[in-house]
Design a protein around this nucleic acid. Structure first.
Lengths: 131, 131
DNA sequence: AGCACTTTCAACCACTGGGTTGACTAGTGG
DNA sequence: CCACTAGTCAACCCAGTGGTTGAAAGTGCT
């Protein structure tokens, strides 16, 4: 899998079963067996889900004695959170700027000649921003 | 698709291209064509991505005259954010409780008989919590 | 050693998902 | 009316995924 970390985390959380697992793990650690109980699917399927969560960094399973406990790794959530926050903030700032512009245009009613849908500015080239 | 809203949003953001799109849309609205430019894929593929984002509620495209602009819908991000926040907080509270417990056990060094890996408490039944 | 339980590996199946090609509709502007 | 562009629909390909079954390792306990 060549996909980046962020994609893996989002993809992992895109499954209701997996989301329920992390929800339960937020309250207490559990063994794979304990995790599996509520769901009506094979134990192997649960291990597969575990593996996905693990590869996404959302969960760790310290090696050692047999019933290996599953721990939630909260920092993986931070990764998503900062991403979301970044673009939400950016969008909100844009809205604020747009409101300000509208207010200003309300102030001087003339000069309505180049209101061409305000999608004229080239706004530099596209920079990836995703890393 | 019978999957819930949350799954759709997470799944939508699990793709780097789609993530880049919302990143760019956070800075300014764009038409589908403008959005497509940076990527080396068919226009149809871009429209598919748009559709996914739209069905996830991350984006809206007001009907009307031909070049339909694409707007980012920030509130969809909130949906994810509250989910993440909820379980992160819950996990952090648990860690704090656990630290307190450890500190307390440090206080009275005796009574080390039931230190069975602190995974003993049943902690009620599993309640779905996902909605 | 032997038994039970947990974990993993591997093959398989149905279905979804990102991408393509190709054709088709709908506005816009001569 | 004709041409152009923006957008859409549909079929297809191939890779990935959620789930299954079956078998094989590890590990713990007596």
């Amino acid at each position: 899998m060549t996909t980046d970390a962020l994609s893996r985390v989002f993809a992992a959380l895109a499954d209701p079963t997996r989301r329920d697992m992390v929800a339960r793990l937020a309250d207490s650690d559990a063994t794979a067996g304990q995790l599996a109980e509520p769901y009506q699917m094979t134990l192997q399927a649960v291990y597969k889900h575990l593996k996905v969560l693990e590869e996404a960094g959302l969960v760790t399973r310290p090696p050692g004695p047999q019933p290996r406990p599953v721990r939630l790794e909260v920092r993986a959530l931070d990764l998503m959170d900062t991403w979301i926050e970044r673009y939400r903030d950016r969008a909100e700032q844009r809205y604020r700027r747009l409101d300000a512009l509208l207010a200003q245009m309300n102030g001087d009613e003339h000069e309505q000649d180049h209101r061409d849908g305000h999608r004229g500015r080239p706004e530099a080239a596209h920079h990836p921003d995703d890393s």
